[in-house]
Nucleic acid binder design. Structure first.
Length: 430
RNA sequence: GUGGGCGUAGCUCAGUCGGUAGAGCGCGGGAUUGUGAUUCCCGUGGUCGUGGGUUCGAUCCCCAUCGUCCACCCCA
């Protein structure tokens, strides 16, 4: 079989055999969001390009080289969303949610798009799940958001292989003062900066600290740290967050070099990482971004949030469970209808449909082959069916069905069609 | 965006020192003209990712392209 068409690069299909993993993780996400009182929000996949340029920051890699932007039929520049925070803020403002004093806990889930070289855990169309809180300043809500990610890892079953790093970026004023300090420091050693860093020096010197260039490690290591130059209020704020995490048994390592890629953060930022996924180690990250709300028209409303990469979580679960998950088959049919009537297709489908209507909670599947009874039963067994419904000349003549339980050693029995649904329910239990 | 590996049946892979290909599993049918998870038999399967080039001849060599993986980079 040759495929006439292939998927675009970095945009793989999720086939039925893999969807169970996603459903399991999505179920954990939903239950966690419910526990914490967050409500789902959905925004369009396309936004006006300016929304992301402004919201994410012009000097970021995402905006500079990773966005899928195009002109629509009226010549307006639209972009496939590379992340969802800017859209959520836009929707919150536009939808009138972000009134001063009101509080909203929001979560989202869906595909995002970035033009990158694909790798394990890094696709061009990928899926993020995230949570955002609007209308709450202060450290408690930051702690809540971090604590819910920790709880999510517990529910997904990956808490043993992830670790948390936190940092504080302070206030805009803190950063402005620090930024000057940093520019002075790096300019004094400008000859040691690589090309990327020289470019960032003018636009966004904080991101130089995030470099992984080994030649610059010493320079970066000795740079002044923002966390040592926070205002007293910011330092207290950050200390409080750390206390609240410790109070709830969540270990966090302070990483003064954690800056995060998006420009709008302030105060607490955090990142969950794992060492089990090769070079894509970040599985979740977030922080406070009051400044973006102000930019978007909600001056009096603060905002905090995080996002996690679903593909990375799926990959992480697969890596740590090795063969376990593969050995867990998808749940088979509750009832598998097989027929030895070679020239009557009407009776079997009518019985199947009757059972579905009588037992809407059960999965009732009609066999599609023409094999002999023995092989049809083998197929039922392979599918993991809980019982088989046998139809043949005798059943057709007496308008009855034979039910054969496949899980135990129960003998098959025959009941009239009218009682088949009830009989099925009672032997399968609940 | 940079560098490198890979692409043979639905899946995992073998193979051809250049003469158009195999295995296991899977899938379909049967052994058993009405009772499964074991076994046996038969069958289905691939213009060897795609397009060019070299050659009498290419799945194999070369180039391009698409997809994929790894590192860098970046982030979720």
């Amino acid at each position: 079989m040759k495929a006439v068409y292939k998927h675009p690069r970095g945009m793989p299909d999720i086939l039925p055999g893999d969807i169970g993993q996603w459903h399991a993780i999505e179920a954990a996400v939903r239950s966690t969001m419910h526990s914490y009182g967050y409500e789902e929000m959905r925004t369009p996949l396309l936004e006006k390009t300016a929304l992301f340029e402004r919201g994410i920051g012009e000097a970021t890699d995402i905006v500079e080289r990773e966005m899928y932007s195009f002109l629509d039929r009226k010549g307006e520049s639209l972009t496939l969303r590379p992340e969802n925070t800017a859209s959520c803020v836009r929707a919150g403002v536009e939808g009138g949610l972000l009134q001063p004093g009101s509080v909203h806990r929001i979560w989202y889930q869906g595909p995002m798009f970035r033009y990158e070289r694909p790798q394990l855990g890094r696709q061009r169309q990928f899926h993020q799940t995230g949570a955002e809180v609007y209308g709450v300043s202060g450290p408690v809500i930051e702690a809540e958001l971090i604590l819910m990610t920790a709880e999510l890892w517990r529910r997904i079953g990956v808490c043993g292989v992830v670790s948390l790093e936190v940092n504080s970026l302070g206030t805009g004023a803190d950063r402005a003062a620090y930024r000057e300090m940093l520019i002075d420091y790096f300019q004094a050693s400008a000859d040691q900066l690589d090309e990327d860093s020289q470019r960032r020096l003018g636009k966004n010197p904080l991101r130089i600290l995030d470099t992984k260039n080994p030649d610059m490690q010493e320079l970066v290591e000795n740079a002044p740290k923002l966390i040592d130059h926070l205002s007293n209020e910011s330092a207290e704020h950050f200390a409080h967050v750390q206390e609240l995490l410790a109070l709830n048994d969540v270990q966090a390592r302070v990483n003064p070099r954690l800056v995060r890629g998006l420009d709008y953060y302030s105060h607490t930022v955090f990142e969950w990482t794992t060492d089990r996924l090769g070079s894509q180690s970040a599985i979740c990250g977030g922080g406070r971004y009051d400044a973006m709300l102000a930019d978007f028209g909600a001056k009096a409303t603060p905002g905090v949030g995080w996002a996690m990469g679903m593909e990375r979580i799926v990959a992480l679960v697969a890596v740590i469970s090795e063969g376990d998950v593969a050995a867990t088959p998808a749940r088979g049919p509750d009832a598998f209808v097989i027929s030895t009537l070679k020239d009557d297709t009407g009776f079997p489908i009518r019985i199947t449909e009757t059972l579905r209507r009588a037992c809407p909670q059960l999965k009732v599947v009609q066999n599609t082959g023409t094999a002999n009874l023995s092989n049809q039963l083998k197929r039922a067994g392979k599918l993991g069916a809980r019982c088989a419904i046998l139809l043949g000349e005798a059943e057709k003549a007496s308008q009855s069905v034979t039910i054969k339980p496949l899980t135990g050693k129960n003998d098959p029995f025959t009941v009239p069609v009218a009682q088949a649904g009830q009989a099925l329910s009672s032997i399968l239990g609940s």
